[in-house]
Structures are given as structure tokens and as C-alpha cells.
Design a protein around this nucleic acid. Structure first.
Length: 280
RNA sequence: AUCGACAACCUUAG
């Protein structure tokens, strides 16, 4: 079963849900019984493909063969509802979990909060954020990162920075994503100097800026017309082990093009191609 | 009172 599960997981990651399903059929035909992991893998795959019908079909099959959903299965199904913006159904399922003596955990709430944040439903996300403690689920750094990102993206920088302060007070260690999220938030409101200060701070903390960090800054510099700085950043990436990728080049080239410097733009297009990165 | 191996959450351009 593990072998089947692993391959099914591979198909799900590739978004090839038809192949995943035919493998499920095959495993059943060969006398292998799908287990809870098989079902959660498939439900998660459908959730990520935003295919609620597919997810529900697996869910129903799981129930009909007498396989009891566990916390992962419920969480994946909540994810499926959330990716379809069906938050009321997701919330109902959260209630079902409690009744089913299958308590949600921090990941369950994180999935729900992520879905709400993705749709700008920060009001509801903040409620859940408060509510999860009452369910015995402590927000972790991922929870905070999701909330921060959501708050910045709806332009609620004030609450975002309050949350940053709260994290510091509660001793939540910032990770790479935390820094990248805040840096992105600062860049979005053109506070590039503040963003650079944070880069300095993360380095001091021993956290290496990655391509998300660089790309965010390159985009921001390009947008502000500071193409030289953007270029310098892109050039420096390889020195710290992050290879410039399609996002870095696209951001820089957009900036250069804004300046009507088409020759420079074509230089970078050729360079990215020579590095095996093809413009899309 | 679990041999081991498989499943769920966060950040970047367009």
C-alpha cells in the first residue's frame, strides 16, 4: 500500500488527478486496500486542484468503505471547501470534527485561516485566530505568517505591525517566511529602506535571504525605477547561492522596459536564455 | 502499550 500511496502522492503533486484515480482503481483491482493515507492524499490532491467534487467523491468512498476520517482527512476536506470559498461548509465541518471526537489541530486552523486570508476575509480569519486557542490549538509561526500576509495584502498594515510586535512579545521566532512576508509588505508600500533593514536583521539572526527575498526587492526597485539597484541585486544573487530565476529576470526586465531601455532589456533576455531560463 | 517506510498549513514577477 505504501508503494501505491507514494506514487498516488506523486501524481497528486503533479496535478494529474486522473492518473491518481486510475492508480487507486488498480490498487483495488490488485487486492490492495486503500488506507486512510491513500484517501487523505487524494482528497488533498483534489483540494489543491480546486476540485471539490473530486474531493467529495473520495470522501464519500472513504466513509462508505468504513474508513473513519482522521484529523488529516478533515483538514484536507476543509481545505477543499476553502479553495472553493465555501467557508460556511468548512466551518460546519469544523463543528463535525468536534462532535466526531476528532479535535482539530493547529494545521486545521492554519488551513482555514489561509483560505480566508486568500479571499481577503481577514475579519473571519482574525476570529478564528482568537478562537483556536479555545480549542487548545496554539498558533504557530505559520499561523502568524498567514495572518501577517493576509493583513498586509488587504492593506491593514497597522494590525500587521501590531501582530509583528505580538510575535516578539510572545517569543515566536521569526523564520525565513516571516521575514519575507514582512519585507514584501514593506515593499508594497514602498518602504524599501525599512525592508533592507529587515534583510540586515535576518542575516544577523543567521537566516539567509532566499530567492523570495531577492525577487521581492528586485521587483520593488524595478517598480520604483531604480533599475541599477535592481540589477546589482540580481547580480549578487549567485554570490550567496541563490541563482536568479524567471521571476528575478522578469521583474528586472519589466523595470528596464519601463525606462524604454530596450537594448538593456534584450541583453537580459539573452542572458536568461543562456542560463537555461526561458521567458514565458 | 506502536518494527520500519507513505498523507495536511505560510512568503516572490506577470
Amino acid at each position: 500500500e505504501v508503494t501505491y500511496n507514494t506514487i498516488i502522492h506523486g501524481f497528486c503533486l503533479a496535478g494529474k488527478m486522473e492518473d491518481a484515480l486510475s492508480l487507486l482503481d488498480k490498487m483495488e483491482a490488485n487486492g490492495c486496500y486503500p488506507n486512510i493515507t491513500t484517501y487523505t492524499t487524494l482528497i488533498d490532491g483534489f483540494a489543491k486542484s480546486r476540485d471539490l467534487v473530486g474531493a467529495s467523491e473520495i470522501w464519500n468512498e472513504m466513509i462508505s468503505v468504513g474508513c473513519r476520517p482522521n484529523v488529516v482527512a478533515y483538514t484536507c476536506m476543509i481545505d477543499a471547501f476553502c479553495s472553493n470559498s465555501m467557508f460556511n461548509q468548512a466551518y460546519d465541518l469544523l463543528g463535525t470534527m468536534e462532535r466526531d471526537k476528532c479535535s482539530p489541530n493547529t494545521v486545521t486552523f492554519n488551513v482555514f485561516i489561509k483560505g480566508l486570508c486568500a479571499k481577503g476575509r481577514l475579519d473571519w480569519a482574525m476570529e478564528l485566530f482568537d478562537e483556536m486557542e479555545k480549542h487548545g490549538c496554539t498558533p504557530n509561526v505559520t499561523t502568524y505568517n498567514e495572518m501577517l500576509d493576509g493583513l498586509f495584502k488587504v492593506g491593514n498594515n497597522r494590525n500587521a505591525f501590531e501582530l509583528v510586535t505580538a510575535m516578539e512579545q510572545r517569543g515566536i521566532k521569526f523564520n525565513l517566511v516571516t521575514y519575507n512576508t514582512i519585507i514584501h509588505g514593506l515593499c508594497t508600500c514602498d518602504k524599501l529602506e525599512e525592508a533592507l533593514k529587515l534583510v540586515g536583521r535576518m542575516v544577523i539572526e543567521g537566516i539567509k535571504p532566499d530567492r523570495f527575498t531577492f525577487n521581492t526587492l528586485i521587483h520593488s526597485y524595478s517598480k520604483q525605477g531604480k533599475v541599477e539597484s535592481a540589477t546589482r541585486l540580481l547580480e549578487s544573487m549567485s554570490k550567496v547561492g541563490s541563482h536568479a530565476d524567471i521571476v528575478a529576470y522578469t521583474s528586472l526586465i519589466c523595470g528596464i522596459t519601463e525606462q524604454n531601455d530596450l537594448e538593456a532589456a534584450s541583453v537580459y533576455i539573452h542572458r536568461m536564455i543562456s542560463e537555461g531560463i526561458f521567458p514565458n
